[in-house]
Design a protein around this nucleic acid. Structure first.
Length: 272
DNA sequence: AGTTTAACCTGGGTGC
DNA sequence: TGCACCCAGGTTAAAC
């Protein structure tokens, strides 16, 4: 499932290929994604030039002079650069055919992604209540400290709540909490300013490292049929329940916190 | 009214 | 082979 580093990788890989080009045609094979693809999508963007491609949270924003195409990859969404000679495969739901005849092809087995139109994305209901980007200076210890006063919610839940901060999914929340030695069930109201400093530093580090590693697999993403690499080799706790803690060697624990699997070390991560 | 929890969408993978 | 079940992330509805 694409998290922020994967989406960032997709955006930077796709950007060079699409920005400045005009869309000639759009083929929608299945419009029932998380939300239905607009019926007039083809009329909306055909013969229109893509002015920029950016990211907000895990949304991709294709800018046109009259509005934005807003896409989310959900859990299994992938964007490929294809040619007209490439066969259409199962779950290939959308083709954006560009002026140079290359095809931006959206494939999404579980169809949890979306493809919507927004005249003004900052006012779109999916985007307007989102918290700050995790890699910007706006997301700092004071911000999190002030927001978390009097809140009993666990730090794991807090980090994964889009209204506090976007783009910190399950994988990177687990990794950052391990690196900061904080137990995922710690109530946020108990976290002191210097602990927030440490935790937020680790969140930014983990995300930045994953983005850098994503960059090295960019070539594969653009050319092959496979999703970009998952960087699993650099994960210390996620998906490693019962395996030895990389710090102390004791078996890692796992626990469901609001329907999300959390992996942590009871010995290294303190519950405050 | 604000915060917290459960349900939902889908299909690949797993285990019986 | 079949089939029930689990799990994933983000949003929304429902519950507290």
């Amino acid at each position: 499932m694409p998290e922020l580093p994967e989406v960032e990788t997709v955006v930077s890989g796709l950007k060079n290929h699409v920005v400045g080009k005009t869309i000639k045609n759009v083929i929608v094979r299945n419009k029932s994604l998380r939300w239905q693809i607009p019926d007039d999508l083809n009329e909306l963007i055909s013969n229109k030039k893509i002015l920029s491609l950016t990211r907000r949270a895990k949304y991709l924003l294709f800018e046109f002079n009259h509005g934005y195409l807003l896409m989310h990859l959900g859990m299994s969404g992938k964007l490929y650069i294809k040619t007209e000679n490439d066969e259409v495969k199962k779950h290939d739901h959308i083709d954006f055919i560009l002026e140079d005849k290359s095809i931006i092809r959206y494939n999404d087995a579980r169809r949890f992604g979306c493809c919507l139109w927004a005249n003004d994305p900052t006012e779109h209901s999916l985007l307007k209540n989102l918290g700050p980007e995790p890699l910007t200076p706006a997301f700092d210890a004071e911000f999190a400290y002030n927001l978390s006063r009097n809140k009993k919610t666990s730090v794991k839940q807090f980090l994964m709540n889009n209204k506090y901060v976007v783009g910190v999914g399950n994988i990177y929340a687990n990794e950052a909490l391990f690196a900061a030695k904080i137990h995922p069930l710690t109530p946020v109201m108990n976290i002191k300013l210097d602990q927030w400093e440490k935790l937020i530093k680790e969140i930014k580090r983990v995300l930045k490292e994953a983005i850098l590693q994503g960059g090295t697999t960019l070539k594969d993403f653009v050319n092959s049929n496979d999703a970009p690499g998952y960087f699993a080799h650099s994960l210390k706790v996620y998906g490693k329940s019962n395996k030895p803690c990389p710090e102390c060697g004791k078996p890692l624990q796992s626990l469901m916190i609001v329907q999300r699997n959390s992996v942590f070390c009871e010995n290294c991560q303190n519950l405050y």
